[in-house]
Write a protein that binds this DNA or RNA. Structure first.
Lengths: 339, 339
DNA sequence: CTGAAAGCGCTTACAG
DNA sequence: CTGAAAGCGCTTACAG
């Protein structure tokens, strides 16, 4: 590919002049401008962004580190970030960590070596020692979906506590008295918040918290949810309704119910966190907490950009609203004592 | 962040020597090696990959351009590519095109400016003028999922024709005589191959091809499938079974059936292309063609790597096997004349 | 306006 | 082994 030097030679100007017509910041005479433009076209010249990055110490690239792109929540979040990034001529380097902190640490190191301008991070559970070390690099991190406290990191999140609490209220209002929980790893802040929201919801209705119908799986994956649900639902006394920490766990639960010959919502009502596109095609359609995943990504990027521009900004925490979409799976109101 | 110069000064060696201990290709005395290592640690030095890229003319970065990461097929493909790339210390820049050729063209240009080493492309429908122009850059492209002919591009794909044909055979064997099609844009090679496979399947069983129960939507999106299905299924005579070109269209179809009060599989049997994780949680569980999406990504990356290493290799075309997973939605065998 | 030159942070022949 | 130097392809003061 042609270089700026070749363009300069052909246009009989200095490389500085070529650079100037390209950037437009410093005026160039019409005569030289056309000569340069012609040379560029003839040589099919495309400025080398790598060289530019080295010089200006900006790569216009950010890393986005999530747990699993297979989860529709994260794929939408990625889309939001990409859409915002494209407008600003930024590019995204994507990484999945599968919730493994050591992989997260390696990925962050690799991104630092590439000198990305910033990072959007949905952190894995576990300690954040490597994040503390990463601060040395001076590369800003904005947490998306999963807040990290104590490191002064910006974040854009939803109010998991309140949304979970609302789910329990909804089920309790329908007459449920034994409401179980199928959740992810409690080391994950989102899982923890949903857990405490669940408990608060029970308390609000003076319902007993029962260990035996509460399960925190190792992951938010379908298979884990399936196995846990199989165990929980084949044990008496069964819950009459379940709240699940995300959609994958709900699918696992539904699979287990099906296998056990239990009907939803007649035998077991279901309400879940997350509301991916396919939700209302399922039978029954699923009552779900919709999160603004696309916006989470978009706002995350915008915040990161502001942080890059101004490292001294004080820490920002953005909370986006959720919405409970009531569908069939939570069931009809129960008559007292039928659970 | 510290530079190689600072490390050299502190270790009292030349920058060349620092580079040599880092790369390991040229031997360095033990004495200097420890001095350099100490300096690196003290300064928390991390080599600047951007500078390295400029010098060696390799960015160890590839672009991956797909239509929609929200489609589980593509998110798995991306994972496959990422997993393979990570092993080779490559990074992936991700882009969604939403099937827009003009966006695809812009994205490719931007990736060229970044001097990616290669590109994994699931091309949008439409003409490929911009791809022809892109060849000038010398940056290799490997097509994944969607083959492009006439430009000498490598590809890794599945046999869409045969898999679609097999779906129709399956339905015909169950006794269906009016088998409809819900497909994506015929300008897309995958859609076209599935279309012709469908027709061949009908022919194999001497079933008539009927325009009125065939629909090629503008996109492979749920909403398009829903609208088309609503139209088609409310018109008599209805098909007794449908073959859909992907999972999103099948979900759209199911939503339409539900709305029209039609049961699946009793009223309408359904077989679809793609087999995402949630498929067998649906009621009925869906008969589906599983594609090795993860492997498509992995093999695509591997092929790209070979192509980068050797631009003179002759064109390679890799075809990966699919598998028809028979579940409830195709229904039980029909008695003759019941359709 | 315009050009010559320094420099971004590396790698890699080339001498010694 | 080791160092001095050139060069990757740009941008940006600095003179003129």
């Amino acid at each position: 590919m042609a270089t700026i030097k070749e363009v300069a030679r052909r246009a009989r100007v200095s490389v500085g002049t070529v650079s100037n017509v390209l950037s437009g910041t410093i005026p160039v005479s019409k005569r030289l401008k056309t000569r340069v433009r012609d040379a560029i076209e003839q040589l099919d010249y495309h400025p080398n962004f790598v060289a530019r990055s080295l010089k200006i110490k900006r790569t216009k690239t950010i890393g986005i580190v999530i747990s699993d792109i297979g989860n529709p929540f994260f794929s939408q979040l990625l889309r939001g970030a990409e859409d915002a990034a494209w407008q600003e001529k930024y590019m995204l380097i994507t990484f999945n960590t599968d919730e493994r902190p050591e992989r997260e640490s390696q990925v962050l190191d690799a991104l630092r070596d590439r000198r990305v301008d910033g990072i959007l991070l949905a952190a894995a559970a576990g300690n954040h020692k490597h994040l503390r070390a990463f601060k040395e690099s001076g590369i800003p991190i904005v947490c998306v979906d999963r807040e990290i406290t104590g490191l002064g990191l910006d974040c854009v999140v939803v109010d998991n506590f309140s949304a979970a609490r609302e789910c329990v209220h909804h089920l309790a209002t329908l007459g449920h008295r034994r409401i179980g929980l199928l959740n992810g790893d409690l080391n994950l802040p989102v899982a923890r918040d949903r857990y405490f929201g669940y408990r608060q919801g029970l308390e609000d209705f003076r319902l007993a918290f029962e260990e035996s119908i509460t399960c925190c799986c190792q992951s938010f994956q379908l298979e884990d949810g399936y196995r846990a649900a199989l165990r929980m639902m084949s044990r008496a006394p069964r819950p009459t309704a379940m709240f699940t920490g995300n959609a994958m766990l709900a699918l696992g639960l539904l699979r287990a119910l099906k296998e056990l010959g239990l009907r939803c919502p007649e035998d077991v009502g279901v309400v879940m966190f997350d509301d991916p596109r396919f939700t209302d095609v399922l039978r029954p359609s699923l009552t779900a907490v919709a999160q603004p995943s696309h916006e989470l990504g978009r706002r995350g990027f915008e915040l990161l950009l502001r942080r890059i521009a101004n490292p001294n900004l004080k820490r920002t925490r953005v909370v986006l609203p959720t919405q409970l979409n009531i569908r069939e799976s939570s069931g009809l109101p129960r008559v007292a004592g039928s659970g």
